[in-house]
Amino acid sequence: MVDGQIINIMKYSIHDGPGIRTTVFLKGCPLNCQWCHNPESQRFGQELLYRPDRCIGCGLCLEVCPNGAIIAKSGNLKFLRDQCQVCGACCQVCYAGVRELVGKTMSVREVLAEIEKDVVFYDESGGGVTFSGGEAVMQPVFLLEMLKECRKKEIHTAVETCGYVNLEFLQTISEYVNLFLYDLKLMDSQKHQALTGVPNERILENLSWLVKNHSRVIVRVPIIPGINDDEENVALIGEFVTSLKQGQELHLLPYHKAGVDKYQRLGRTYLLPELQSPGHERLEQIAGKLEQLGLKVKIGGGSK
């Protein structure tokens, strides 16, 4: 059995599918959307999160670092990220929570044990587990095993995907997935590439297949003001999705800034610092347009 690269297992998820859920976030994504609020999910392999505001200056990290990535300078500890090999030695001794490794290897059994802890809540609320990330389908063998195990335990499964994956993988997991949450961002492929790193043809093709062959797909469109909320993009999305299925379910996810600090903690730069969340009125407007095209639209991420 193959292990999974996991960022986080979040309990009491109420916006990633119906009921009370547990969301398993897998590490690694083929896209690098500029607005991503989980930047720590993009790269495969472990990364180091660094929060200097919590430092108590005990210096234990400096003592244990084998790569000289931590130095003392004018009374403070300084982190030289270029030297860091992400070995995690400093994280072991930092009790103040300044240094944290993100990305953990976990076996199918370990992850399942975590998921099973909240079964009573799934039962009571019609919830279950959602596999997200990053891109869950980028770990297809692990994901398939997880889905099979959940199915055996009669736990409702949802998979969130960006769609830029091998269609075969989608096809293979399909029968073990109760609900697909499929992200759609930009219809113009060039623009898509500029802002996410990849073109969108495959994404559209895969969605096509999925809608036609799976019983429950919800299309999710993040609304990023100034980037994809223009009339043209909205109309193109609406027309495309309607062409696949009349009355298709579609959720609008308003952009938020919650993940912005994480870039700093990863030593990266956030490329869209001026972006603000779209107001509720704007979302209603967009929802209206899409509903006119015959889609079943909802604002927000939870669902029944």
Partner: peptide, 12 residues
């Protein structure tokens, strides 16, 4: 927070 809940003290 937005689409999820989190510990207040962990936020920026």
């Amino acid at each position: 927070v937005a689409g999820y809940s989190d510990y207040f003290c962990d936020l920026s």
